[in-house]
Design a protein around this nucleic acid. Sequence first.
DNA 1: CTTTCATGTAAACAATGTCAACATCAGTAA
DNA 2: TTACTGATGTTGACATTGTTTACATGAAAG
Lengths: 186, 186
Amino acid sequence: MSTSVNAPYHHGNLRQALLEAALIILEKDGEAGLGLRDLARAVGVSAAAPYRHFDSRAALLEALAVTGFQRFSAAMEAVASSDPADPMAAMGKTYVLFALSNANLFRLMFSPQLKKDGRPGLRMAADAAFDTLRHLVGGDMQTGRIKALAAWAKVHGLSILLLDGQIALRAGEDTEALIAEIIGSL
Amino acid sequence: MSTSVNAPYHHGNLRQALLEAALIILEKDGEAGLGLRDLARAVGVSAAAPYRHFDSRAALLEALAVTGFQRFSAAMEAVASSDPADPMAAMGKTYVLFALSNANLFRLMFSPQLKKDGRPGLRMAADAAFDTLRHLVGGDMQTGRIKALAAWAKVHGLSILLLDGQIALRAGEDTEALIAEIIGSL
DNA sequence: CTTTCATGTAAACAATGTCAACATCAGTAA
DNA sequence: TTACTGATGTTGACATTGTTTACATGAAAG
């Protein structure tokens, strides 16, 4: 029984296909909804096949989170290099919008689960992302460390509170405008 | 086979015992490490017994999170009623310290898992907690909504970043002092 | 053509959440 | 007291999950 009429025994690029399908499932169903068997079935492969490319489910999740940090870095560098009027505000807005448009991926990136296993790839990716973030901030304006940390905390907290639906929008209020207002209140 | 020599058939106060043991396991092993069977064994009861008091594992977690919000509210009210010099700063500090000293419980309170099932008890507890928070803030100083949201975001983000170990302490730096500094930078 | 090795499959395992059927016991009513 | 009843606990089973082991396939190297 094969999904397509003439499915080849070897998939060809299973690792990549798994990651792409996993990302879709992740955004739709959340991390808990991402089962290895469902994922394998979605790609048209047996339940054990993913183990040729990932040591465990956690390793698969780690790979997802790593690509998340890479995309995050890319987004931040893109705004920074677009030479905006207020670099800090622009980066903050990008930070929050990235979280909102990649909700479950963002949550996965900061998942305490993955961190607890001490997965080195994830730690490296996160460190790299925040290093470039620090570099971009330090390059464009000479903020002190405390102010930078405070800005980071504000932007990160805003991301999570919005993600969790804790911040209620008023009637006719625009999310993006609210973000700008909160970021602007330094 | 019974844990104690003369264990009675009926536990007596199983629901409470489950919650207390669950809280301990939660703080030690995290949410993923909190299995129903282990929990039942820790309390000296069969694997199915918890189902007489909780509909599901998620319901048990919800109950834990609810008590978390109650403790959180109590802590915030305690500081506010102690009439501190700078109410906002004091509450912010309490907010972060609560998160740090109840790490996994705090994470559970904001777990996307529980939120997704639309558990009404959790939503009510969270709303109640944040209502009292808003009340305390609004009562002591007339902050605008945007400033209040910004302060909330900063304090919440700081909690999570510290919890995740993302903010590195410098040599000889005190966590509590750093918190105070960041909160102070409004 | 043969060999090899990365990559896939099938079948099994242990552990988990959950449920159904039965056991125990405290309290109430006769 | 005696019988019933409902709340609470136990046992055994089930489906599902992550994971492993043994085997199958086939593309590329020799």
